[in-house]
């Protein structure tokens, strides 16, 4: 394997790992999935911020 190929492979793996971690920790999948439900099955979105 050439150095260029090693670097590209490493970058792709790194990008993949970071993307997976981002999807796990930063995305709220319940919200995303809710937006794709049929209107009659969709839950009501209630917004809040962590402050009184």
């Amino acid at each position: 394997m050439t150095d260029t190929r090693r670097i590209v492979t490493g970058l792709l793996i790194w990008t993949g790992v970071v993307s997976l971690l981002h999807m796990k920790y930063n995305l709220d999948w319940s919200v995303i999935l809710n937006d794709y439900r049929a209107p009659e099955n969709r839950k009501v979105n209630v917004a809040y911020i962590p402050v009184t």
Binding site: D28, S30, V31, N34, K43, V44, N45, V46, A47, Y48, I49, P50
Partner: peptide, 21 residues
């Protein structure tokens, strides 16, 4: 009901106006 956390009131305002929440 689906609770959705936001970080500021301006974002909530825009989402409410647009009907996203």
């Amino acid at each position: 009901l689906l609770p959705r956390k936001f970080q500021g009131f301006p974002e909530i305002k825009e989402a409410l106006i647009s009907g996203r929440i």
